[in-house]
Design a protein around this nucleic acid. Sequence first.
DNA 1: ATATTTTGTGTACAAAATACACATTGTTTC
DNA 2: GAAACAATGTGTATTTTGTACACAAAATAT
Lengths: 248, 248
Amino acid sequence: MAVVKNEINSKQLHSKTLKGLQSEVQGINRVALSVDCVIFGFDENKLKVLLIRSDLKKYQKKFSLLGDLVKPEEDLEDSAYRILKQRTGMDDLYLEQVHTFGEVGRHPAGRVVSVAYCSLINVQHHRLKIHDNDLHWHDVESVKELLFDHKKIFDACYKWLQKRVQEHPLGFSLLPSKFSLRELQNLYEAILDKKLDRRNFRKKFFSMDFLVDMGEHEQNVPHRPGRLYKFDYEKYEKKKKTWSGIDF
Amino acid sequence: MAVVKNEINSKQLHSKTLKGLQSEVQGINRVALSVDCVIFGFDENKLKVLLIRSDLKKYQKKFSLLGDLVKPEEDLEDSAYRILKQRTGMDDLYLEQVHTFGEVGRHPAGRVVSVAYCSLINVQHHRLKIHDNDLHWHDVESVKELLFDHKKIFDACYKWLQKRVQEHPLGFSLLPSKFSLRELQNLYEAILDKKLDRRNFRKKFFSMDFLVDMGEHEQNVPHRPGRLYKFDYEKYEKKKKTWSGIDF
DNA sequence: ATATTTTGTGTACAAAATACACATTGTTTC
DNA sequence: GAAACAATGTGTATTTTGTACACAAAATAT
């Protein structure tokens, strides 16, 4: 458990005069705030994460997450969308805040507190819009060492994703809008890193009743083509309110 | 979905020279960072939250969460422990980060980004150590309007607690170390705001096998006294690693 | 046309959640 | 101290959910 400093003499933020508040807020008690995005993709049946190679020789050209400082007049979430737009060219990505990392020594340039966001992206769409030589998709299992504390941030987001995907239908953001059940299962197996029973998987998703049969089939597969489905977000939004359980 | 600003010309934080980084981190791109604590307690079979009345007349003496600015040389989590220590006199409380609130206009004194922490406290212990006239326990259902965006923060933490308590054994932090099963059930009913079946509740907790029978009984109750139990944290820590399910 | 690969489907079994009733223990009241 | 009261403590039947598992049908490749 952390050591408690400054036990006694600090007044409480919301109990000060407005003037006192303003001077504190504009005073020395400020820190740099950054947003770091863990952007997941799904390609060739593997879960991927988008990383950039650091320019800093000092840091041995390690890979790092995509991040930037939050601007003084910018909403936190807007910072994350700005980073996503810059790097992927897309502005309608799934995005959710995961955790804030605020240890004093986490960044070598000084005090930088970082808010981690998790984003999910359809790799096919992304490919068309972005070209950056230092930007690469990495298999999640091959991510070993990252810049600063980015491995810790990545691990937190990956665990978050594994849990979250079992409670909410995020995974569809990683797939094309039309997908086969095999693709969906491959996705879940990649995220959760375990094999699932095909028949039970299908039974579960059909019983949830959020998949719409598109009446089409896969093309150019070297075997019997599977049916294509899409996820019915509207139906989900309507139904989810009545649920109390943990599963979706 | 938020509007994306600054689409193009911002370089990426982790791709700059160290000097450039340092100047940015120490430069104008800084914000005030605060921690706000949502401190829950359980008393008279009701879930309570600890609030303080704001001194600021301008804000109509509304109640607010307990918070303060994060100091430049202070770990984020240490800030939260400092606030808890100041306000409750205790330094071994359950504490967990929940969410960071970073809208530009959320605080009238300027840009203040706030990290919300949730803490759970045994009200009996607390009573012995703190005396502050502006500090009060409020029934959670009676919390209507709070200072700034604190109601939003409170709501997020309350929902977080309701979900979290079904996956992890946090609730025990709200109870005395020895408690009856009726007390435990009252706690869960108060947090989840619904009635639970007594026999099934007991069955579930006994089957988890983390309750230790203290061989004692309740005192001074106007009816048949129930047995007293404690929660076996060690056993839980050992066992939980092997679990994959969502329930604890 | 034959072999190969993957899709698509149902059932039996096990485990977990739920609904539900009565005897027991201690306290309070008359 | 007898009777009424109030809460504890316990088990079983039912429903629901999860899991394990096999074979026919469709399309492709040779």
